[in-house]
């Protein structure tokens, strides 16, 4: 593919994957919810997300007395753009990735930290109480889990001798990082749940604050925000599959198929955890994050280092 064509094809590919991913997340979510609630998974699981989306399209968008209108629109856009940027660096096969950036994992760090900005802005802009409370409690958690991600990604970079994702995939030939650095994937899952404010780490959009940053959001802006959240979860799953589950490597099937398959596995696990684990308390999470998870991330780095010597 020529450089020019690549630049044009990249947005289409990432947008397509993210849209499909968001739909899959919604279906998985409905299926797990039906199973856990004891209702049994029905056929409506497939059409449900589309129907709910249609309802949000029809619904009147909310307004508040004096919002920061520009930031309120910017936040979901930034969030969706970040999901796309994150997905763009994922290699799909030995020879193809949308953009195999040299400092790929550092770019991922940027995506994660800008995602925190997007979520905070979403809560701040409405100028309403519950969304503001949600934004601030999310910020505390966000500034804590971000460090975990840096450590586990650096640990993955050690055997690859590169910050590039394609090299990290290649370094897992024969033995995946999930075996070699067993602490990496679970710690990264925490970051994934936090960055898409999902399940036990849904501090930004939690039900106890009437929906948190979405408490005063209705209609299409809400549809876009939920879609962006699901897209972010998809991006994170693809990243987890790439860094810890060997990416495109695998027998028989072509590379992209393996990436999709592994992404779906991670996605299913993350979505299921949302219905099986209760939301954490912010302050306790922050403490646990710094005093338990962070030392574990240190340990992960040491394990990776010893192995590489």
């Amino acid at each position: 593919m020529t450089a020019q064509a690549e630049v044009w094809a990249a947005p289409l590919l990432t947008a397509g994957v993210l849209a499909a991913g968001a739909y899959v997340v919604a279906v998985l979510d409905a299926a797990v919810a039906a199973a856990v609630s004891g209702a049994g998974i029905g056929r409506s699981v497939l059409a449900g997300p589309l129907r709910r989306a249609a309802l949000l399209v029809v619904q009147q968008p909310s307004a508040t007395e004096r919002p920061d209108a520009a930031s309120w629109a910017l936040a979901p856009a930034l969030y969706a753009g970040l999901a796309a940027a994150g997905l763009a660096v994922i290699p799909w096969s030995a020879s193809f990735s949308v953009a195999d950036v040299e400092a790929g994992i550092v770019l991922w760090g940027t995506v994660e930290s800008l995602a925190i900005v997007a979520i905070f802005l979403h809560g701040w802009s409405a100028n309403t109480h519950q969304s503001l409370l949600a934004a601030y409690r999310f910020l505390a958690a966000g500034l804590s889990y971000l460090l975990l991600s840096m450590f586990v990604l650096i640990a993955a970079a050690i055997p690859a001798e590169s910050l590039q994702l394609s090299r990290i995939v290649e370094s897992q030939h024969g033995l995946w990082n999930v075996v070699r650095q067993p602490l990496g994937l679970p710690l990264f899952a925490v970051v994934a749940l936090g960055s898409s404010t999902w399940g036990p780490l849904n501090l930004a959009d939690g039900d106890d604050l009437s929906g948190g940053t979405t408490a005063d959001v209705s209609g299409r802006p809400r549809l876009v925000w939920s879609g962006a959240r699901a897209a972010m979860l998809t991006s994170f799953s693809a990243m987890a599959a790439t860094v810890f589950l060997g990416g495109w490597q695998g027998p028989v099937l072509p590379g992209p198929a393996w990436v999709v398959l592994k992404t779906l596995v991670v996605l299913a696990a993350l979505v299921a955890s949302g219905h099986l684990f209760a939301r954490v308390r912010t302050e306790r999470f922050v403490t646990v994050c710094w005093l338990v998870l962070l030392p574990l991330a240190f340990l992960d780095l040491v394990i990776a280092g010893v192995e590489a010597l």
Partner: peptide, 15 residues
């Protein structure tokens, strides 16, 4: 359970 973000379990309890 609904408060704690466990909507599906809440439905189960309600049933």
């Amino acid at each position: 359970l609904r408060l704690a973000g466990l909507g599906a379990l809440a439905v189960r309890a309600a049933r």
